[in-house]
């Protein structure tokens, strides 16, 4: 190898020669995507020609393959980091990449928030006759009146609204608290207080799990008691799309933090060198901020 080395033996910029994980990942993504499309067709009544049940199996195989790829790929990166291959410059690359990745996630949520605001500010008032869309109202749904949450769709589907100050508020407190605890964990890591680090991080993961359980309780309540479901018009659509994708991100974030906890228990990370931990905690803060917007615009106002 002819990489130029710093005095301490770290390569200036480590370029791996070849890797199997990307192609494993591509195949895994493909299996998952193909399986998901087939699965959905086979398990909903939209496509009458799609019979059989193999779609689900393909989909789960794909997910397992993605997990396998991530374990292998991240495992390789962790090994490099433990061997001291990660120079300051490479560490910078990882950090910046994570930031941009989070920006792309922000924009993913922005699409659904856009849909929410469009429905609240434009489509629902229009359907009720506001603006220049009077004819639609008069000819198609003259009885439709504007409300938000939309209790009664133009087509006549009824639902009740989810109250903000019950479970959702408790969940807000939980998630904000967990953002604080993960910061305490980070401070402990920087001061090399391993015990406090483990405790705060474990608490964060636990709070994340409690959040998810409460979210599940809330969904059951919505479906069983409120008639609030995916088919309950645009209120239900935006409600479940936003909270559902948020929940998926909480799951991902909590998994990342749990992996960090395991690594910390195995003695990984130093006060100077702990990018993966920081990335996971950034992600956690991001999930938290998205929730604050959700709480404000989906539940509260």
């Amino acid at each position: 190898m002819s990489e130029s080395h710093d005095t301490n033996g770290t390569p200036r910029y480590y370029v791996p020669h070849s890797s199997v994980w990307p192609i494993v990942g591509s195949i895994a993504l493909f299996i998952t995507a193909f399986g998901a499309a087939t699965f959905i067709q086979q398990s909903t009544d939209k496509v009458l020609t799609a019979t059989g049940t193999y779609g689900g199996i393909i989909f789960y195989i794909g997910l397992a393959a993605i997990a396998f790829m991530m374990i292998g790929w991240f495992g390789a990166v962790i090994k490099e980091s433990l061997q001291g291959m990660v120079s300051g410059l490479l560490d910078q690359s990882y950090r910046q990449a994570m930031m941009w990745f989070i920006l792309s996630e922000v924009m993913f949520f922005a699409a659904f928030f856009g849909a929410l605001f469009y429905a609240r500010l434009i489509s629902v008032p229009w359907l009720a006759g506001a603006g220049h869309k009077l004819e639609t109202h008069l000819f198609l749904w003259p009885d439709f009146a504007e409300t938000w949450p939309l209790f009664m769709t133009p087509g006549g589907t009824a639902t009740e609204a989810m109250a903000a100050w019950g479970l959702p508020f408790i969940n807000t407190v939980i998630l904000v608290t967990s953002s604080v605890t993960v910061t305490f964990a980070h401070w402990a890591l920087k001061k090399n207080q391993r015990g406090a680090l483990q405790a705060w991080l474990a608490l964060t993961v636990a709070l994340g799990i409690i959040f998810l359980i409460l979210q599940g309780v809330e969904y059951v309540h919505a479906y069983n008691d409120l008639g609030l479901n995916l088919s309950a018009g645009i209120y239900g659509s935006t409600f479940f799309m936003l909270t559902g994708f948020h929940g998926a991100h909480v799951t991902l974030g909590a998994t990342m933090l749990a992996v960090m906890l395991i690594r910390i228990l195995r003695g990984h990370f130093t006060p100077e060198n702990h990018f993966a931990f920081e990335a996971a905690s950034w992600y956690w803060h991001f999930v938290d901020v998205v929730w604050l917007f959700l709480f404000t615009f989906v539940y509260w106002f």
Binding site: A115, Y118, A119, I122, S123, V124, W126, L127, T136, L140, L150, T153, P154, G155, T157, L230, S231, G233, I234, Y235, G236, S237, T238, F240, M241
Partner: peptide, 11 residues
């Protein structure tokens, strides 16, 4: 869902 369906309040 009714994101793009006026009958459900979407557009």
């Amino acid at each position: 869902t009714s994101f793009f369906s006026a009958a459900g309040g979407g557009d």
